[in-house]
Structure formats: structure tokens, C-alpha cells
Nucleic acid binder design. Sequence first.
DNA 1: TAGGATAGCTACTCATCAGTATGATACAGC
DNA 2: GCTGTATCATACTGATGAGTAGCTATCCTA
Lengths: 248, 248
Amino acid sequence: MATSRRKTAPGRTALETGPAGTSAATARSSPWRASGERARDRQIKREAVIRAAAHAFNHKGYHNTSLDDIAAALKVSKPTVYYYVSNKEQLLFECFVAGIEPIRGAFRKARRLKASARVRLQAVLGHYGQAVASEFGWCMVRAEDQDLSPVMSAHIKSLKSEIDQGIRRLLREGVQDGSIHPCDPKMTAFALAGALNWIAHWYRENQSMTGAQIAATFITIFENGLIPRVNAEAARRAGAALAGRARR
Amino acid sequence: MATSRRKTAPGRTALETGPAGTSAATARSSPWRASGERARDRQIKREAVIRAAAHAFNHKGYHNTSLDDIAAALKVSKPTVYYYVSNKEQLLFECFVAGIEPIRGAFRKARRLKASARVRLQAVLGHYGQAVASEFGWCMVRAEDQDLSPVMSAHIKSLKSEIDQGIRRLLREGVQDGSIHPCDPKMTAFALAGALNWIAHWYRENQSMTGAQIAATFITIFENGLIPRVNAEAARRAGAALAGRARR
DNA sequence: TAGGATAGCTACTCATCAGTATGATACAGC
DNA sequence: GCTGTATCATACTGATGAGTAGCTATCCTA
């Protein structure tokens, strides 16, 4: 009876039984393999906790979400959540990092592109928009300094600043290579980031557009501007030509 | 002894003694006048409570601000705050309304303008930006549905939607009268509002730019777009001419 | 100058929720 | 089979904070 508890115990989740099942089936052959699987299980569960937190924060807000809520969503108890993360603040922080990491990756990729700054900016903003529309968008955008300890707050601020500076740099380069209309990089970066960040406030999945589509639409809007262009295509080509000349 | 308590009681504020003093000096002549002054005093104090709440929410966030904090900032006790507002939610709501009202006014004024839709949109967005950069900007922008009762939430949503629809309408009109580059009004409105709303996240008074200056800068950025214009001034004039022709 | 209305305070209640103490179970390795 | 470690639950503590009960003082009107 005691040994059969695991099987009959309530509260086992698909999340747990899934990987645990495969582990039980494959781990017997090698002890090292087994312990590795165990570590992997832990990582998978930890990520599930973070995803559940992101989902809850996204729908109810950070302060309106209790760790009991998150635990209930995972069909486990609160101490189990604490077994994977040290506290609520760290949970928010992890969600934030999960959201911002793809954007940092986009910058790294863009840096290797041989193209005008405007095109590289396009690429970055596309990923940016998608990240904001993702499950972690809310946490990324709405993680308030006010809710975090000074240390975490500083850490998040520096990550945010890195993104901001990256956008400003691309804008400056674009103005220099002629691919971007002369502008104040700081204010323009604020405008771009603001418009994209705001997606997290209104976008919900199950909507007609995907995150990528929204990002693409926004980029077109930013690029064209409100003032009519006599010939948008010609202007685009002209911009590209200018940029090409500036880059040799 | 009992009657002298008021004089010696701690916690009297300038806010209270100021208006009360003038009322005492001028009210004797007419009872109606006096009661009017009293009502006015109450209104002044009520507004002070709302301003203090907005300030606190702005700096610490809604959830990190207790009504004790607000009371302390006003140098009164918590029940005094409850004497002027019924609960914390209503306080947030009042701050929201105070923030959004100037924008609704801007729409009313713009409606009477004899100008292209783009120029009218300019006017509205200018006020919009200023409102977001104001003391009530935070409450306006960050009042979350999640923090409010369904009734309040619905009320706020409808006010927000009114603004949104107003912007979309101006965009549609602009595309029709030729003063605005063809675009998806819904997405463009989201982009514009997002960029401006975001001001509330980074702007703090005592900064080098005023709210109006930021709004003006943003509008220029939106109007020009990122793609270089061969001759921005010529383009602007061309747009104006197109618009004029469309409006007869 | 009495009495009602206005304005405010002290001192509470009560609910929520982050975080923990303690103990039970299951699995890996010997 | 035995032991240590990993995993998880029950049941708590302690703090915070929204909102209130009940009292006091002051002002206005008659």
C-alpha cells in the first residue's frame, strides 16, 4: 500500500509523469544516465514552474497572483514551488530573463548581418515584437522596479538598458549610413520600444494575428511614417541605395 | 480644556489650516456663502487626496502603496482618507479619470478644427503625450483591469476605447483626405498610443524635457518615419496639398 | 446656546499571503 | 533489504494592509 502510493496519489501532473515515465523506462541501464535524467527532470519541472508563473502573472498580474495560485495551476503544493525557486521575486526575475533572452539573441544575430542598419534594426525589432507578444512578454515589460529588491531591480535595469542602447546604436548607424531618416536616437528608441512593449498590454493569444505578424505590421508603420510618401517603393529603394553608398 | 484641543492637536496640515482660515475670515457675512466655502474646502481636500494618491502610485506602484502611506503624505490618518473616498479602488479610478479627461477635451477641441486629419491628430497626440507625462499619467496608463472590480474595469475600458476609436477615426479620415500615408488604422493607433503611453514608464519630472516637448518630438518621429525622405519639407507640403484638395 | 452636521483620530478586526517547520514517501546506490 | 537524498505535503507563523467601530472636537444653523 505504501509503495503503491506514487501510482495512486492524486496531484500527479502530465508534466511530471511524462518525463518521469521515460526516465523510468530508459534509466535502468546506466546509473550516470539515470542521475542525468533526474537532473533533467528537475530542470524541466523548474521551467514548468516558471512558465506557470508567467502565465499567471500575464493573466492576473504579479500582485494578484499568489504562490498558492501557481502551485494550484501545477497541481502541487506551495512548498513544492519553493523547492524549485527561492521566492516570488526570483520567479518574476526568471520570467523576465526568459522574455528578454531572445531579444539579446536577435542583437547578436543582427550584428553578423551584412546589411544597412535599417535592415538590421528591422530584424531586431521583429524579434522584439515577437518576444513581447510571447508568454513572457508581460513579465518582461511590466516587471516593475518597485516590486523588486534593489539588487534585482539593478540587474533588470541593466538588461533593459542593454537593449535600449542596442536600438539607439542601430539608429545612429542608420542615420550615418543613410538608411534611416535623421532623428534623435534616444527619443526614437523610446518611441519604438514603447510601441512594441505596449503589445503586451493588449495582445492575447487566440487573436487573429501572430506576434510576428504584428511586429511586421508595426515595422512597416514606423518605416513609412504618417506623412504620405509620393512613392513608397521608390523611397525604399532610394534609402537602400543611399545606405549602400555609405557602406562603400 | 476640551475645546482647546483643536489648537494643540498634532497633525494639522497646511492643506487644512490654509483654506479653513480664509473660510473663517470671510464666511460670517452670508450663511450660504459659508456653506459654499465649506463645500469648496471639501472639494479641495478631496482633490489633494487624489493628487497624493496619484503621486504615491506613480512612485511606488498601486500595490506597494498603502492607504496609510497616502494618509501619512497628507499628514492625516487613514480614516480621514476614507472620509473623502470610499476605497482604494475608487482612488485609482479617480486618478485615472483625472488623467484621461484632458485627452477627451483635446478630441472635442480637435473636432472643431478646420484642418487636415493629420493636423488634428497632431493636436490630439500632443495633448495625449502631455497627459501621459503628467502626474496622473501612471494611473491612466497602468490602471490594470486586474486590480479593479468588474464594474470599474468595464468603465475604464470604455473610456480607453473611446480614445482608441477617436485615434482610429482620425487615421481613417487622414488616409481618406490624403494627409496620412495609407495604413491599418487599428494597428497604427496601437503603435501611436503604445509609444505615447510608454512615456509614463520612463518619464520623471525634473527631466530636461517637458511633456509637451516629448510629445512634439514623438509626433515628428511618427510623421517622418524611419525611411529617409528625399525632402521632408517638400513631402510635408505635398501631403498638405493633397489633403487640401481632398477636403475641397 | 443647543443640536445636528462636519471632520477627524485611536485602536481595532479580519483576510490574505509569503515563507517555513516538520514529517512522510520514493528512489538510487550499496 | 538498508541508508541517504530528492521530492513533496500538511499545517503552521508572522507581517501587512484594507477597511471599520466608536469616540472626540469643531462648525453651522436656528
